[in-house]
């Protein structure tokens, strides 16, 4: 419409377009190169994703699964364990028994600190062998103090040592558990019989529960557990001793695959002194109720208000 200025915009535009195209091409090349570099950098993810199936990715929360869906999941876990560990397992989803409230008591007067409970836990619950993981930690305490600060969990000498007593510590299955409260995805909760459990297939591995637990009861799978095939305990349950995936939280389940079927926890069976007493707090005739009524009983860190279901007592 207006007169063309002498600088000939047609030519100028052409040059600009040319520069623009070159620049755009450079940018596109840079972006492609960058994307390729990131794909290469992230390559280890593809190796990791090989073991993940769509079913696993979409699996529902334990409490939302129908019995049929649970059956499918158990089937998949069975075939995966056969594939990865070479072991045929029998896995079930053991439900709480009605009107049962589990509790545990430990006699500090006769515990000798032999750590056989910790070892039994290690074997029963299919723990990683290299890290020698166990849900139980035994503290060697100095007589005259119940201050944990004076305890030592790494002793290697013969037991019982003079002037010492021993305090095994595992999940206290609190009635007011700080760990379940903090979980952002409800991957850990308290069951009707009082057992605090983890859905290993729902946990996102944030480890907030581990920070919240005042008893060092939780363990994280820093890597996928490794167990020789011949050492794997094939009797497993979904919420307890099945082989855990990498990157999720785990903890003591009072051996619910045993105790919910009328057996005793592995740690109790292994104890050579009879220091451990396990039973139904709802049954007035149970041994554990007798102990609560007749012994000088205390719980750990009572001042925190966690209301443990794990009781300690002295005989003499």
């Amino acid at each position: 419409m207006t007169e063309t200025p002498p600088s000939a915009p047609g030519k100028g535009c052409g040059e600009e377009d040319c520069a623009c195209t070159r620049r755009t091409a450079m940018k596109a090349a840079g972006a492609t190169l960058g994307a390729a570099a990131f794909a290469t950098a992230l390559a280890p993810l593809t190796e990791w994703a090989q073991d993940l199936s769509v079913d696993q990715f979409l699996q529902k929360h334990y409490r939302e699964m129908s019995p049929a869906e649970m059956a499918q999941v158990l089937e998949r876990i069975t075939s995966d364990t056969l594939k990865h560990h070479g072991v045929q397992i029998s896995i079930s989803d053991v439900k709480p028994r009605p009107d049962v409230q589990f509790g545990y008591a430990l006699n500090l007067s006769i515990c000798i600190g032999c750590r056989r409970c910790a070892e039994a836990c290690h074997v029963e619950n299919n723990h990683d062998r290299a890290s020698h993981n166990s849900y139980i930690r035994v503290l060697e305490m100095t007589q005259g103090s119940i201050d944990l600060e004076q305890g030592d969990a790494t002793y290697t000498h013969a037991v019982p040592a003079p002037g010492k007593y021993y305090m095994p510590i595992q999940c206290q299955h609190c009635d007011n558990p700080p760990c379940t409260k903090v979980c952002p995805v409800e991957a850990t909760w308290k069951e009707d019989d009082g057992i605090v459990v983890v859905d290993y297939d729902w946990c996102i591995g944030c480890r907030y529960c581990e920070a919240a637990c005042p008893y060092h009861a939780r363990r994280f799978n820093w890597q996928a557990p490794e167990i020789p095939a011949e050492e794997i305990n094939p009797v497993q349950a979904y919420l307890s001793n099945r082989i855990r995936p990498q990157g999720v939280m785990e903890k003591c389940t009072f051996c619910l695959h045993r105790t919910r079927q009328g057996r005793l926890p592995a740690c109790l069976e292994a104890c050579p002194t009879g220091a451990r007493v396990f039973g139904d707090l709802a049954d007035p005739d149970s041994e554990i109720r007798w102990i609560l009524a007749n012994k000088r009983v205390f719980v750990l860190k009572e001042e925190l208000g966690t209301k443990p279901r794990f009781f300690y007592f002295f005989d003499k």
Binding site: H61, P184, W202, C203, I204, C206, R207, Y208, N221, M249
Partner: peptide, 29 residues
């Protein structure tokens, strides 16, 4: 926080409406 997760593939468990969002109890939510 994402790199701190043991299972980043399960991030959707944290999405309100899709996963199980433990709100208001968990301060992380």
């Amino acid at each position: 926080v994402t790199v701190d997760l043991g299972r980043p593939d399960r991030f959707w468990h944290l999405m309100p409406g899709f996963g199980r969002f433990n709100w208001p109890m968990s301060m992380l939510t």
